[in-house]
Amino acid sequence: MTRPPILEIRYLSKIFSQPVSLGGRIANLFGGNNRPIQVHAVQDVDITVESGEVVGIVGESGCGKSTVARMLAGISTPSSGGLRWRGKDVDKMTAKERRAFDLGVQMIFQDPFASLNPRMRIIDIIGEAAVKHGRIKRRDQRDYVVSMMEKVGLSGAYIDRFPHQFSGGQRQRIGIARALAVNPELIICDESVAALDVSIQAQVLNLFMDLRDEFDLTYLFISHNLGVVEHISDRVVIMYLGRVVEVAPTDALYGDPNHPYTRLLIDQVPRLEAGKRDYTPIKGELPSPLDPPPGCAFNPRCPYATERCRTERPALREISPGRLSACHLNDLA
């Protein structure tokens, strides 16, 4: 490993805050105690992605996985922490380097209906960015877009159509072609197959793997579907309430999960082979990120929680080579 990792996410945090209202500020003048409402959507997320890897990020809704994706794609800015792209700090990049980073990271969205502009033709949806950024000449746009469409399994004959003339699966392919058109190195898939039927989902997952070989891509695959992540990922990151709780190679994670949350989550995955069985459900619900429990955020639902878990937050640390987990139980062993 002489090359630096393609992407290092360093202690990335995102705080959304709602400022104190006018009424609240007036009340404060008279000794009120209204503070801005803050949500720590993402806290100290630290992930390293090697070139060519597929890293899955899994968690329940509200765990911050999509917020991480949006910060990586530059859609929202981190509150603290930073990103390193091929060993370089993104904040300290020159304009030219920054441009290369922005083009190098592309995102494929969840909803194939909302993520394409309904008033643009496919030729522009896919080709606009490539022309704008000078990858191709305008007169070559048509040929280029046709070649991109064929790469993702669409017929080039549809090039002048509008998005509404396509089915969900085809639209998702258009989204993929759009991302590929600027020759990215890292693709962020945020629930990219969640809205598709099983048979179409299989087609799109196969397409992702084919493109990985062809274009030498690295994927960050975000999903709540553990089956899909298990199928596609080399390494899996489990998030809970804004923090990473476990990182491990896929086989190790599914075969021998360390964190109690991971264990319970994997038990919940409906499986074809298992046949009829009794689920032992995880107790309770995801706590509100507005008011996270003290100590380990999972302690109210954890069957093994001790007094220490209720007061002290466990740090994410290495439990064996390549495996990280944030659980006090590892200290006992």
Binding site: S167, D197, N206, E230, H231, I232, Y254, R271, L272
Partner: peptide, 24 residues
């Protein structure tokens, strides 16, 4: 059969998923 085989899981990792060509 196509539906069953196109469900992704750990046992399908690394391999291509069975896919039903075309669309509904």
């Amino acid at each position: 059969r196509g539906l069953i085989e196109s469900v992704p899981s750990g046992s399908t990792r690394g391999a291509r998923l069975h896919q039903i060509e075309g669309m509904t």
